[in-house]
Design a protein around this nucleic acid. Sequence first.
DNA 1: AACCTTCGCAACCGCAAGGAT
DNA 2: CATCCTTGCGGTTGCGAAGGT
Length: 236
Amino acid sequence: MGRTTWFDVDGIKRGEWTEEEDRMLVAYINKYGVRDWGALPKRAGLRRCGKSCRLRWLNYLKPGIKKGKFTPQEEEDIIKFHSLLGNRWAAIAKQMPNRTDNDIKNHWNSCLKKRLRRSGIDPMTHEPIKATSSSATSSPTLRHSSSTGSVRLLNKLASGISSRKLGLDRIKTVMISLEPSQAVEEEKMMRSSKEEMIGCFMEIDGNLIRTTSFRELATTATKSYYCYDDWLRGCV
DNA sequence: AACCTTCGCAACCGCAAGGAT
DNA sequence: CATCCTTGCGGTTGCGAAGGT
């Protein structure tokens, strides 16, 4: 199974990898490591582009990668992490040792998403699908003109992350710190104003986790709540 | 048996971020 | 500071296998 083999205009091979190519790539990486993907194919004697070699290594050849069927526990984990992190497959893969982001993404798109829909759950929001609702859209939009500052900040952060405008590693500055009681008030105000709840974020053990309520954020998080600096200045 | 549809998964593509120069 | 290059990520595609009609 695989894609047809073909060569591009530069003579670079595309499509399915052969066992021989796999052996050459593994032998090279075992000897020299994985520096400089751009130069690796030539050095390893492969007629492939660096990107293709990187993908083949990370998704298939790298030691410790678990292939095959996902266990029910793993599927449960994927759904749980997706509800927290959205389509951030690399972040989800970090929570699941030995599974690649590509594998998780494939399983989600080909299986879990449909399964959730069949059981009446919107796979994007992880909320029950409302028959009359026309607002079950995939990407959250911002409608927060009447929100308080903290709500607005958190939701802009959520939106920025989910739209990939902002990489997590660019989140540098602690700007928001809610007391539990304050969080409850924030949430009440937001719900009463019928604003769309996009999500809040908290940091646990170095990972930024999406939560469903300000209350949860304020009572569960072990550290302060992170916001952003340069991106924020341009948006608020 | 033949055809069609769905599934599973490897691989490609385009884009963004960040480092090097 | 600007530009180029490399790396990493998420969306999408292509194709054989499996299942259904």
